[in-house]
Write a protein that binds this DNA or RNA. Structure first.
Length: 273
DNA sequence: CGCCAGGACGCCC
DNA sequence: GGGCGTCATGGC
């Protein structure tokens, strides 16, 4: 990744990033595509730092109104710019299916999101579709003046006071996650550093957190790249292409591989429909 | 109208 | 330990 300061903006060159593929692939739910002079512009935030970012052509990006210090301390980390995805994809391409998946949507990166926001977001995601997940999270942030509420704030709520979210049966799970995080029953920072099976077990102490949600929190919110969320689509990939198990050499970054595979299987399924 | 959504829980055997 | 009905809501 190369960057330079240009006026109030940071200009970035990074061939292994595509904004549509990365910001609208179901790993994060608060990025909105807006109309602009550029081909592709999103507004969103990491915790409560807002950003407008544009992709002008393949590999070229504008981080609007971004201070160089903020770019270094926040956005390099969030977009995982310190990881060489070309190298990752070269490694994955030993495997035929993964090779195809990487060349289909090679601009996907793993965003290093906030663990607390991820926990709530993926609790909301269960048995739900992406447009409605976004709607619920929108209403949640809107309620807190366009910011994602802290666990302390949310721990003041209960199933009934969260009715405005229209999150259905998930409201009681949100309340439980908030109270357990706020009172220290679930220490997300410590969980993030635990051996992966201990971390999984600790997350599953929260109501509404099962295998899939725990895996998503570990991958998207704690940068545990070995975490491997298995949904109906990935189940299909495993059955169809990996009957003898997922290749050993890709295990430590299985979660990143999973993102390429998820996009790939959905695209070829849509084609054949 | 019925089907499904990047699931988890509770209860059953 | 696996199988299955149930859980709200809304897009399609």
């Amino acid at each position: 990744m190369d960057y330079r300061v240009q006026g109030n903006d940071i200009i970035v060159y990074e061939p292994d990033l595509d904004l549509d593929e990365t910001l609208d692939c179901g790993q994060a739910f608060r990025w909105k595509k807006i109309a602009s002079d550029h081909d592709c512009t999103y507004v969103g935030s990491f915790v409560n730092d807002k950003l407008m970012v544009s992709q002008t052509e393949k590999g070229n990006f504008i981080f609007h109104n971004t201070d160089e210090n903020d770019f270094i301390s926040k956005w390099i980390k969030y977009f995982d710019f310190e990881t060489d995805y070309s190298e990752l994809k070269r490694c994955f391409s030993e495997d035929e299916t993964l090779s195809k998946a990487c060349s289909f949507a090679g601009g996907i990166r793993l965003l290093r999101q906030d663990s607390w926001e991820c926990l709530i977001s993926f609790i909301i995601s269960q048995n739900n579709n992406i447009p409605r997940i976004k709607g619920i999270i929108d209403r949640l942030c809107e309620h807190y003046h366009s910011k994602f509420p802290s666990c302390e704030q949310l721990s003041q709520e209960n199933e009934d006071s969260l009715a405005y979210l229209r999150s259905g049966f998930r409201a009681k799970y949100i309340a439980d996650a908030a109270s357990k995080t706020a009172d220290g029953t679930a220490k997300l920072r410590e969980i993030a550093a635990m051996p992966i099976d201990e971390a999984r077990a600790a997350l599953k102490q929260i109501k509404g957190v099962g295998p899939k949600v725990a895996e998503c929190v570990l991958l998207y919110g704690m940068y545990r790249t070995e975490a491997f969320p298995i949904d109906v689509w990935i189940k299909r990939v495993l059955a169809q292409y990996y009957p003898d198990g997922f290749p050993e050499f890709a295990r430590e970054n299985a979660g990143i591989a999973q993102q390429y595979l998820f996009h790939y299987i959905r695209s070829i399924t849509k084609q054949s429909e």
